[in-house]
Nucleic acid binder design. Structure first.
Lengths: 235, 235
DNA sequence: GTCATTAAATGTACGATGTACACTTAATTT
DNA sequence: AAATTAAGTGTACATCGTACATTTAATGAC
């Protein structure tokens, strides 16, 4: 395969550019990661992040959204560019630069058929296997970013279902920071932000008494997301 | 020019990858940016960030350091990867992805001869001209990152000379945030961190009375830099 | 040499925020 | 009806952030 590079660019080695997605989900009080069994050489059959090559007329953001959609069937997912990984030897098959993207999805909404086709599985954070290339590093960086963002953006809400209980929200934060939080302070803080709307339903799966369901006030959410804010949870 | 891509990679268009550096400096109580007049087509002669293509056996970090060194003569500069810019039409000459890097240098230390050779000039932030392609966007993103980092990392010290006065440090923060700060609170906060060592010299260029010179306690600096900390300046 | 000028240096009081902590309530199961 | 389980609630204290005015050191002008 040969490719013509315009002469004005004095370049000897054009590069391949890939995108890899670190896909976070949350259920059963655990933060989880969606991993696939790699279907191409090199390292076929090993655990890997979901990835793919950048298309000819695509931005990296578009590529990441496309690749995420291939695996989950979801659109409009929370995606953030994380880092461009460029060690010349990171991929033994060729010189490939990979830009990692960090995705937050609602586990219940993704397409399980598609996941099966890709040999994908959810892993608890504590049970992440050895991944190909520098993918474990990407996961570490993504987790760091998640911890940073969870303080200043309402990222939690990307991971929970539409309706959720305060104990669930607290469990999410406890999973992100691997730290127990005080119930009273947590509730005081999140409620004081005015982003939550209490519903007239209870979720009784978690206890006999049942916990009130809340949902998210979208307009408050948007204004917080744009202005930047401090998510008032002490960790 | 033709390039062979391993067949195992089902890719049609390899890409060019460039690096662009947003170079910050500080003097005369102003935050400044080092810009060059572009020496290649397209857009020859227009103002631009210093950039270059990624070499065959180089990581992006190495490329950024090399490119920064070409312009300034400096090594061991504070450099952070900022973002991979990938709009398919961002460079009208070819499909080029550019990874921006953000650099903090001490203005007094850079090589002015080299700068002259590249037609480089320092611009006050308020006087940044129209730049090529998406470079103004890169500058905006870099400034945002600087503002974020200045709260959580001692980045200020990359921009000041070895010995500096507290009024200088304060002026730097005022320039970064475009906001006047209270002298007493500022001093109390920065001194309470224990990162500064008071010297037995005064700098008398700024006033009759003269201001005490300080320098930076490297070991405290390193431990803060690694652990992450909160730079205790209210802005 | 005294006075005026300039910027540097210093401390405190008040309000806001963060943080620790224990009992009651609702519903189910035995 | 008694026991169990998780949900829900308020207060007191410490820490931190923030506003604010006067004194000090040195030089230059008269």
């Amino acid at each position: 395969m040969s490719v013509v590079i315009p002469e004005i660019y004095n370049v000897h080695t054009p590069l391949l550019v890939a995108v890899d997605c670190i896909i976070f989900g949350f259920n059963e009080c655990e933060l989880k990661l969606l991993l696939v069994k790699r279907q191409m050489e090199p390292a076929r059959g090993e655990w890997s992040l979901m990835g793919g090559f950048l298309g000819e007329h695509e931005s990296l953001d578009e590529a990441a959204a496309r690749i995420l959609n291939q695996l989950t069937g979801l659109t409009d997912v929370y995606l953030d560019q994380l880092y461009a990984h460029s060690d010349p030897d990171r991929d033994p098959g060729a010189r490939v630069i990979s830009v990692s993207y960090y995705a937050l999805i609602k586990i219940s909404q993704h397409n399980q058929e598609l996941a099966k086709e890709h040999d994908a599985e959810w892993f608890k954070l504590s049970e992440i296997p050895k991944l190909i290339f520098d993918h474990n590093l990407m996961v570490d960086m993504a987790l760091q970013l998640l911890r940073k963002q969870a303080k200043t953006k309402p990222v939690g809400f990307e991971l929970l279902p539409e309706k959720f209980t305060l104990p669930q929200l607290q469990a999410l934060y406890e999973a992100i920071y691997q730290k127990e939080l005080d119930r009273r302070n947590f509730r005081k803080n999140v409620l004081s932000m005015g982003m939550l709307e209490k519903l007239d339903e209870k979720d009784k799966t978690g206890s006999r008494k049942g916990a009130w369901l809340y949902r998210f006030n979208i307009s408050k959410y948007e204004s917080f997301r744009n202005q930047g804010f401090f998510f008032n949870v002490s960790v």
